[in-house]
Amino acid sequence: MIWRDEYKIGVDLVDEQHKELFNRLGDFIQTVRSAEKVAAKKAEIDRTLAFLGDYVVTHFNAEEALQKKYNYPDFENHHEVHEQFKSEIAEFKKEFEASGYDEDLLMEFSGYLLTWLINHVAATDQKIGDYINSLNEEDTK
C-alpha cells in the first residue's frame, strides 16, 4: 500500500502505527491477490488477517487513549466507528469460513479494507490531529 506524508496527523506514535497498519494490510492484500488458489494459501490468509486484526486492536486502543487524554469531543463517534470496524473483521472471518473460503468474498472484503483504511487515516483521523494542534495553539497564545 502507498503511504503518503499528507496522511500524517502530527502525533508520532499514531503516525508510526498508521504506517504499520498500511504495511500489514498491504501484506494481507498481497497474499489475497497472489496467483495461488485460495485452498493453497488458506493458512497464510488466516495468518496475515490475524496479524492485521491484532494490530488494529493495539492501534485503536492507543488512539482512543490519546483522544481521552485530550478530551477529544468526537470520542464517542470515533469509538463507535472503531468498534464497528473490529466487528466487521470478526464477521468476515466467520462468513469466509462458513462459505468454504470463497474467493469472491475474500477479494470483495480486501478491496473494501483498502479504501476504508485510507479514508479513515486520511480524513477521519486528521480531525484528531487538528484538534490537538488547536489546543497547542491556544496554549501558546
Binding site: F109, G111, T115
Partner: peptide
C-alpha cells in the same frame, strides 16, 4: 486502485469493484 494499493491491477475484479464501491460510499 493501483494508486491506493501500490499494486498492479490488470482486470476489473471483485477487489477493484469493491474498492471503488467503498470510494462511492464515502
Amino acid at each position: 486502485v493501483e494508486a491506493m494499493s501500490g499494486m498492479e491491477m490488470q482486470k476489473i475484479d471483485k477487489f477493484v469493484t469493491s474498492a471503488m464501491g467503498e470510494l462511492g460510499n464515502i
